[in-house]
Design a protein around this nucleic acid. Structure first.
Lengths: 113, 113
DNA sequence: TTCGTATATCCGGATTAACGAATATATTAA
DNA sequence: TTAATATATTCGTTAATCCGGATATACGAA
């Protein structure tokens, strides 16, 4: 399991933090965890925000290199970018654990679709 | 050495990230590291920004609980708040190491004053 | 006291970011 | 084709953030 990564992607510490400095984006990342693939409809349902808002924030996370997306039919699945450098994955993992606690979120299991 | 901490302070993951999501504030934290006390004049010199700007960002870090200040005469010394919870200190340490690399900063040694 | 230095705060203006309804695009099924 | 569903993007409005000169405050020395 656990797909092996290609060469690490450069990510700026400040832009990573800026991404996670928004509660909605932090919530998205917390729902994914570092190893889970989730589809947009689940994220919309779990965070109870308008679809356009979720989609916009996902685009930001993607543009930052923090997450990657995979299309399957009409659905889009998002996950943390496994090609992130070690330090970034470590940071994300630590924050996700605490972030879930603070935001009262559980990692999403199974797919809605 | 290494002062023992009192009870951990609650810090929100999102607000910690928001703090570190600004390059100037990230620079300040990188110059302090997790165990160094630095005075404002050194920070102003090292980051080459107006004193009022530095002071404003330091106030934000302080208000977030990320740093604590100690006055000594006319000088103010700042350091990372040792009472931060474990996860926060871990996150900061990881980001500081990489942040220094990206911003081209060295931890400040010795005092200007 | 007064002066000089170090730091903090104020404030108006500029820039950036977040929002969400409306609309566009992509895909599948019929 | 068309319709239906899932997701992305646009756009105008509102809110938050950043900046830095000017000013205020705190302290030590004289």
């Amino acid at each position: 399991m656990h797909a092996v990564q290609t060469a690490p992607v450069e990510v700026s510490v400040a832009s990573l933090c800026k991404c996670l400095g928004d509660e909605l984006r932090l919530g998205l990342v917390c729902l994914m965890g570092t190893d889970r693939e989730v589809c947009v409809c689940d994220l919309v349902a779990a965070l109870d925000a308008p679809q356009s808002t979720i989609s916009r924030h996902l685009a930001q996370l993607r543009q930052c290199g923090l997450v990657v997306a995979r299309r399957q039919g009409t659905w889009m699945y998002y996950r943390i970018n496994g090609a992130l450098p070690e330090w970034a994955l470590t940071v994300i993992e630590s924050m996700v654990v605490e972030g879930r606690r603070q935001l009262g979120l559980r990692p999403l299991q199974g797919h809605c679709c």
